[in-house]
Computed example of a mutant assay.
Amino acid sequence: MITSVQLQKLDALYANGQVEGISADQLESFSEDEADLLIQECEEVPPYTFLPMSPDMREELLSLIRSGVLGRVSEADLKYMTVHTGEALLWSVMSSNINREELASTAQRRRIKKLLAEGFLSGGSPRQIRNLTKHMAEKLIREGEYNARKGVRSEGKFN
């Protein structure tokens, strides 16, 4: 089991940018000898090789962990986490929110297909219609209905 003196050494090495990152599970699994070996390896890493997380990033990740958004990461995992890993976690949360736009409803897709058949919208492939977002479908329906009111037939394809 890792000792308090070893933890102090790891804290100092982390603050100096010499610890790449250690999860709580890894830390708990170390014997005293394994911890000594880890410390020795970290001491050989040039200072400032790894950036420790800022307090703001730590707080943001802590908030995400406590809210259940980062379910596979524990609060203890933040102890020696680097900026690189923290940024990757934040990116994964943010990018998954970006890609969650709701798909068009069945009624919207049906209306678009009708406007296409009547020539008031230009054709997209069945796959494009199936993967339309709700927002894009609304835009296409507005365009097609405007064309229908004006009696304008559409040419080309929508994207």
Rank of each mutant, 00 (worst) to 15 (best):
M1H: 12
S4C: 07
L7P: 01
L7Q: 09
Q8N: 13
D11V: 03
N16R: 13
Q18F: 03
Q18S: 04
V19S: 03
G21A: 05
D25Q: 14
D25M: 13
Q26S: 10
E28N: 15
E28A: 15
E28M: 15
F30D: 04
S31W: 04
S31N: 08
E32W: 06
D33W: 10
D33N: 12
L37K: 11
Q40G: 08
Q40L: 11
C42D: 01
E44Y: 07
P47C: 03
P47N: 06
L51Q: 13
L51I: 07
L51V: 04
D56I: 13
E59R: 11
L61D: 01
L62I: 09
L64Q: 02
L64P: 02
I65E: 05
S67P: 02
G68S: 03
R72D: 15
S74Q: 11
A76V: 08
A76G: 01
K79W: 06
K79Q: 10
Y80A: 04
M81H: 06
T82A: 05
V83W: 08
G86H: 01
E87R: 15
W91I: 13
E101N: 12
E101P: 08
R110G: 03
L115P: 00
L116V: 14
L116T: 13
G123S: 12
R127Y: 10
R127H: 08
Q128Y: 09
L132N: 01
L132D: 00
T133L: 09
A137T: 09
A137D: 09
E138Q: 13
I141K: 03
R142K: 14
G144D: 09
N147R: 10
A148Y: 07
V152G: 02
R153W: 06
G156T: 01
F158N: 07
F158E: 02
N159I: 12
